[in-house]
Design a protein around this nucleic acid. Structure first.
Lengths: 255, 255
DNA sequence: CGTTTAGTTGAGCATGCTCAACGGTCGTGG
DNA sequence: CCACGACCGTTGAGCATGCTCAACTAAACG
């Protein structure tokens, strides 16, 4: 399946395509195709050789890893996110497996096209470096979130992040099932329940997927969000502009 | 202080300088200088704006982060490693603090020079992307190591990695103090002691900084090292060649 | 209606941390 | 040369966070 006109529009606006010339864009995207997958599809297993850069345009994808009968969620991606860019740049194999959580729409760009475009246009190469650097920093934030905070603190900060993204209102809707949210925050569903109960002391009231904040200040005092860990700070321009310089939302969310 | 001839030679051979032309190399390195720091020097604190790319040429550097009176070691770097490359590429502030653990020698390359060189030479830009991608993958390995293994398993794999790096002999020398090794492996010194005792069942005998392996097979059966987590696998060419395509030893070691 | 699945709640357990005490080594200074 | 102190490493006891296992409820779906 070849790209249709409107498909290219959707990705033309991605952080690392926006600055590219039309020729470079065409080169990078040559051989790319758009594909839909049902929920639960394994796109990639650990150790597989990586032939494509994936761009999640719609749906949700879980990145995970396993060892010796244990396995763990490393990130949950929401549109628009690229993934396994690092493996593509190094023409190497995947360190994480990727599975669709919902019916999803993905753009698949041949790795060789991408590498060729990087080598022929320095501005495009620089844009890819910026994307990679953003992914790296997202991972660092994620590690800090996990190592410096206990599970209830992670939940509190997650809720404040969602509040900021959903308009700063006093009530939000959780974007995932609670079991998915739990793995995103690095805990079991049981512990997520208990963490929600603990936060009732900070005015957090849960009803299904709706969460109401009755004492935002108390919650903030408890959560102590930090611009060095969380990525939702108003500092300066619009959050969208910020989100564009440092993307890969999923990874920054993630545990 | 200006670079002397032999200093440039030492960095000319770094993964992302090797492919560059002399002109680009000079441009990237213009304004760079070499500096020595005593042990315990804070090179960078979280949140500082980053003006230089650091290259550790000798000594050891700890990357860490803190929040709300807690703090944690994220990586320990050994020569030759770059650090805070991602912040430099994005011209952003530091997400980690950097402290020398020993007397150390560092090359400091002005961020602006580096970004200019990336934008003017696609081959150099691509090399920086490769370096970044390697750092990213090092972090992913590190997270997997931490989330999928308990502390004793991490120690066992660390010992096998050291054994491979030190020539596959039956006895190795620990390259760090045990307290540093503990933080590298993400545990307290007390627990490191206990983990060593547990591994005596697998033929691990400790005497100061010397470790002897009496039952390597048993240790390997226990540790189950994986090329998707550990970076010391013989797969194909020389390990050095492999280490060059995917560098930043410290980060891959790290917790 | 039964069956399934998500979510909650409770009890017990395990990994790893804190705090404290103790032994050994090294370096300094009397 | 020895005494002292500082620090690393070890060992033990108790504790906390988070996990497993199990039972139970409620809502969704056939």
């Amino acid at each position: 399946m070849v790209l249709r006109i409107k498909d290219t529009d959707r990705i033309r606006d991605l952080a690392f395509f926006r600055t590219a010339s039309d020729e470079i864009f065409d080169e990078a995207v040559s051989g790319a195709f758009l594909q839909r997958f049902p929920a639960g599809t394994t796109l990639l297993m650990e150790g597989d050789t990586v032939d494509f850069l994936y761009v999640l345009l719609d749906g949700a994808v879980e990145l995970g890893a396993g060892w010796k009968s244990r396995d763990s969620t490393l990130a949950i991606l929401k549109p628009v996110s690229t993934f396994i860019l690092a493996a593509v740049v190094l023409d190497s194999d995947a360190l994480m497996s990727a599975v669709t959580l919902e019916r999803s729409e993905l753009l698949m760009i041949p790795g060789e096209s991408l590498r060729r475009a990087m080598k022929s246009d320095p501005a495009f190469g620089f844009a890819v470096s910026q994307e990679l650097a953003g992914c790296y920093r997202g991972l660092v934030r994620s590690i800090k979130n996990h190592k410096l905070r206990d599970s209830t603190e992670r939940l509190a900060n997650y809720l404040l992040t969602q509040r900021a993204r959903q308009g700063g209102n006093d009530t939000i809707t959780l974007p995932h099932e609670k079991r998915v949210l739990a793995s995103l925050l690095g805990m079991t569903p049981e512990n997520l329940s208990r963490a929600f109960s603990k936060l009732s002391a900070q005015g957090v009231a849960v009803d299904g997927a709706k969460v109401r904040f009755d004492k935002v200040q108390a919650l903030e005092r408890y959560a102590r969000p930090s611009p060095l860990i969380d990525n939702h700070f108003p500092q300066g321009e619009s959050q969208l502009g910020k989100a564009h310089t440092e993307r890969q939302q999923g990874v920054l969310d993630a545990l």
